[in-house]
Design a protein around this nucleic acid. Sequence first.
DNA 1: GGTTGACCTCAAGTTGACTTGAAGTGGCAG
DNA 2: CTGCCACTTCAAGTCAACTTGAGGTCAACC
Lengths: 135, 135
Amino acid sequence: MKLLDIGILSELSGAPPSTLRYYEEIGLIQSVARNGLRRQFDTLVVTQLALISMGKMAGFSLADIKGMFAKDGTPQLPRAELHLRADALDEQIRDLTRLRDALRHVADCPAETHMECPKFKRLMEFASRSAGARK
Amino acid sequence: MKLLDIGILSELSGAPPSTLRYYEEIGLIQSVARNGLRRQFDTLVVTQLALISMGKMAGFSLADIKGMFAKDGTPQLPRAELHLRADALDEQIRDLTRLRDALRHVADCPAETHMECPKFKRLMEFASRSAGARK
DNA sequence: GGTTGACCTCAAGTTGACTTGAAGTGGCAG
DNA sequence: CTGCCACTTCAAGTCAACTTGAGGTCAACC
């Protein structure tokens, strides 16, 4: 099994070594051996880091993320919980889509004052509703 | 023009008064008057707060968000910049969609070990690629 | 064999986004 | 007029997620 030096893992994942050490310290990833002082990582950690990166993007804390995946990097949650997370993501995807649409609309709409453009107003109404709805 | 007390605005937006004061302090929102000591907010701030909430969800810092909107709450950026932001959101929406699909797949897939399921592997490949690609 | 350079540890510092606490103010209900 | 209570200011505290710095190790190239 091929093992990775922290520098290599850093390049593959885009995260600086200090971050990878920090992640190991908090138990988010693990090194499987040492070569002298140097940590050696399994290649599967690359996948784990990709999942971590996506999880962060989705707004989860590192603690949340730690709870979602087992040591082998596979998600380890009851089915119902997984579906709840997925539902939350759907919600978030919808919101981001609205924000994107609002931005694109404003970029292209020739109206002088957007607050009076009916299309923009409609987009903003959705925004208020969903923002208020969230905890 | 109807004005809102900070407590009312807090209820409407879901953000605690301390947060609203903080946002005013950093210039993200503005109160238009005082009733005695009490800040009075324009109702349009509700919309602004909704935009702020969406912006945060999209991973923008408060400083970024402050730069994106003029005092009246309408986006105030050159068209090209707006489209760039929208493109970034598209990218992020795609990633979140993949994360969601991965979660749903794992919830429903009967395979013993997901790391060997071809569908899961494919999802993870995308994940690695896009995670590595980002800054 | 010496010096580089990538790694190591551990403690402390930083940043962003708030929150908390102490001490005070002011409008309105009774 | 007396309380009450939601507001006010300002400084300091908190938390997550890292980053930085000092001082040390080790394998490898010249």
